[in-house]
Amino acid sequence: MAAIVLRVLGGVGGGYGIAALSTMLLSTSLPMPKAEAVLTASMASFAIFAGAIVWAFAARSVARAWLGLAIPAALLALALLIPGSGA
């Protein structure tokens, strides 16, 4: 039961986080006008969210599931901190 709760938390919370971070990064880094980039990134975000949830339940162990969510989230956050990644 605890394992399932952890997967749900990871999938929903972590998944939304990754979707939000990727939307922020793509909104300012896609090679197109700014408003277009925001729309493209936002439209893609739900596919990323769904993918993250599937991963949270597909991974062999809870630890792997969380690691697989934490690493992309950290990389996205780092990329957002780099000056020049947008506003």
């Binding site: 979707a19 939000a20 939307t23 990064l25 300012t28 975000s45 596919a47």
Partner: peptide, 20 residues
């Protein structure tokens, strides 16, 4: 998917927050 997209600026506003 299109249902999600219709309200995406409410549920996923982070791109606007970042770029604007």
């Amino acid at each position: 998917y299109t249902g999600l997209v219709i309200f995406m600026l409410m549920t996923m506003p982070w791109g606007i927050e970042r770029a604007y």
